[in-house]
Nucleic acid binder design. Structure first.
Lengths: 223, 223
DNA sequence: ACTACGGTTGAATCCTGAA
DNA sequence: GTTCAGGATTCAACCGTAG
């Protein structure tokens, strides 16, 4: 392994992943940029625009690298939206089997067209598995409720709860979890809480600093 | 109009729809064959295998015809599953805007891989709109809960409640509603209950007879 | 335990005005 | 004409607190 475990790398993930050994990752859990040029206009808080979110050109190279580093029977969880789910699913299916599409049901609905559309209340999570690896715990449904957390840190912050849930369903202690788009850091933080190893990339320096602060805070409180 | 309203035609819908006038349909509400060769093993009831369900060759011709007969600003609701949502969405998008993907959340979970997968609890409904037509009533979320109904009529029976909900959101009295894959008849029955007109096709004679019986029953009870 | 009520919030979309 | 950036806007769901 030419890469350090339990580190958040401030670099482009497609480059950085090249230093990860073949078939060494036990779980992929990530929230990719949706390719929507999203910038939150939420009230007074102005978040940094998501980098490289104006197109999905990175997707084929990214997926190829993911397939190289993630174990054959590992589970993959990839967040995406209804706007371009067909693009993500089609690309991922070139390498891995999309076994299910999970629904993260949020506690509240979003903005958008007020009169001509239904209010958005969920995010998709593409769940990939070749079928050999079992899920830990009982048989849960493919609709998962989890409350949104504060979005002071990141425009599209994911709840640590939800990440920990997926981590426990699909990995054991000391496994290696990869998140190429760490964002607010929910995956590395969840991994640390649950005593798994993580490899994380985040291209935005500000977010990297936030993640490292949050991780340090856990260290102080856990031990 | 060369076609009779409020009739269930026992024929292939791609042929039958040719008799519908251009841009004459106010709402499309249908549960297409998912292309999975589905045959329910539910309890003792053996359902008829869904015809033409082993492939999706019909889809391009079907969608072209749908686009011809449905009004430009009309809403389209097309049920589909996660297995091939990308195929349906991509094909539909050649003609219409998929504005949202609705989740029909069922009261119970389905079968499937008991150990290596999450239990299926929903169906997708592709919601298409060019954005000009408003939805009736309040602003509802894109997750819609509706109980499954008895499964003795049809393998993939949809609740009449749910169809009536969509009918009321997206049409007014005397509108024309099209269902090219009528199945158990939830759409024509919902349409009749809500005093809309329907055009329905169902290739399987047994199902046609069932639908007509159910429709007759409404006539008796409504008037 | 239950209801009532106030406070808070949203991976968006539309519209307007400037370039 | 066209594109683009930024500002205003919804109401249903949920939570916490109080009665």
């Amino acid at each position: 392994m030419q890469i350090e475990l339990n580190t958040v790398y401030n670099e482009d993930c497609v480059d950085g992943m090249k230093r990860i050994e073949d078939k060494s990752v036990d779980l992929l859990l990530t929230d990719v940029p949706y390719g929507m040029e999203f910038q939150s206009n939420y009230r007074n808080v102005k978040h940094i625009k998501i980098q490289n979110d104006n197109n999905l050109d990175w997707l084929p190279r990214w997926m190829k690298e993911i397939d190289r580093v993630v174990k054959e029977d590992a589970h993959l969880y990839i967040f995406c939206s209804h706007h371009n789910i067909e693009i993500f699913k089609s690309e991922i299916q070139k390498y891995r089997k999309v076994k299910n599409i999970l629904i993260w049901e949020k506690n509240n609905t979003g903005m958008g067209d007020l009169y001509g559309d239904y209010a958005p209340k969920y995010e998709f999570v593409l769940f990939c598995s070749n079928g050999k690896k079992k899920l830990n715990g009982g048989r849960d449904s493919n609709i998962i409720k989890a409350n949104r957390t504060q979005n002071d840190l990141h425009a599209t912050e994911k709840p640590v709860d939800l990440m920990e849930y997926f981590i426990e369903k699909s990995s054991v202690e000391d496994d290696i979890i990869l998140d190429p788009f760490a964002g607010s850091g929910a995956t590395p933080i969840g991994a640390k809480n649950k005593r798994r190893n993580y490899i994380a990339f985040e291209i935005e320096e500000t977010h990297c600093n936030t993640i490292n602060k949050r991780l340090k805070h856990i260290q102080a409180s856990l031990f």
